[in-house]
Nucleic acid binder design. Sequence first.
DNA 1: TAAATAAAAGATAAAAATGTCTTTTATTTG
DNA 2: CAAATAAAAGACATTTTTATCTTTTATTTA
Lengths: 143, 143
Amino acid sequence: MFSKTCEYAIRAMIFIAQKSKDGSKVGIKEIAKGIDSPEHFIAKILQELGRKRLLQSVKGPNGGFYLDDESLQCSLADIVKVVDGDKLFTGCGLGLKQCSETHPCPIHHEFRSVRKGIQTMLENAKLGAFTEELEKSLTFLKR
Amino acid sequence: MFSKTCEYAIRAMIFIAQKSKDGSKVGIKEIAKGIDSPEHFIAKILQELGRKRLLQSVKGPNGGFYLDDESLQCSLADIVKVVDGDKLFTGCGLGLKQCSETHPCPIHHEFRSVRKGIQTMLENAKLGAFTEELEKSLTFLKR
DNA sequence: TAAATAAAAGATAAAAATGTCTTTTATTTG
DNA sequence: CAAATAAAAGACATTTTTATCTTTTATTTA
Ligand code: FES
Ligand code: FES
């Protein structure tokens, strides 16, 4: 469904969202541990998300990553688009050069509908909305 | 969603299904052309599907690939399982080691539902069912 | 201002996916 | 049986993804 990179990205962003709720910042080491990912690899991913303004960071002592109020409103769909592109949302399920109503593959209609379901799910999932269940350990970001 | 390998596999199997309807066999060159895929690459994939009995073939002059009546009842889900494994049907959307009710990731419930939708779509899509629309050029397997 | 800190950036490296080419084996046909 | 045919198998190459390690830049604090 998602690339490994994208899975890490989503987990990291949800992790940072949780830590950001009280205004604190979180370092890359803690993030990597918190989501069980390679430290330098997730660092690269977060740099990219930072360049695209989905995430904030500050260097130096007491620095780290955080999400401002706007970023907390980001949806998982926003993250997926930045990391994996929009193939998942607009591409043909059978790999035709483009998904098209006038030149459809054999599963076009059914696929379009499940693809829409995925998109809706991801667009409705805002980063700020996961904190509570994580705090209560009802959901998890690793293992 | 699917690997490139799996996209080719599904397109090839639908192509062969169409040619098999009247009992004829089809060679690897024609398949590769018909679905716009690298010839030797799709050959490998079909060998694997043959070993798993999802597809029949005969060597030598007038040989080629075909689907018997049982194989025509195969679903796209069967192909996906052979080629990509069952990660798509049972794996965690965020890449946790396993998807679990008791140790769920933050999107577990929503993801499980769209995942189920995908599975249902693929299980209901039988290879024998695509022929008619292909014949009428209402659907396409390349470009 | 100097030292410490932490992210950003750059350079490699390893692994997996994708693609190509050659040789072998099985089958048919003359 | 010999030649032709076509899939099966094996070897190799390229590209992309995933992961690791080092250097640089920005910021804070003493
Ligand atoms: S053309 Fe294949 S999904 Fe639309
Ligand atoms: S635990 Fe992530 S989808 Fe079930």
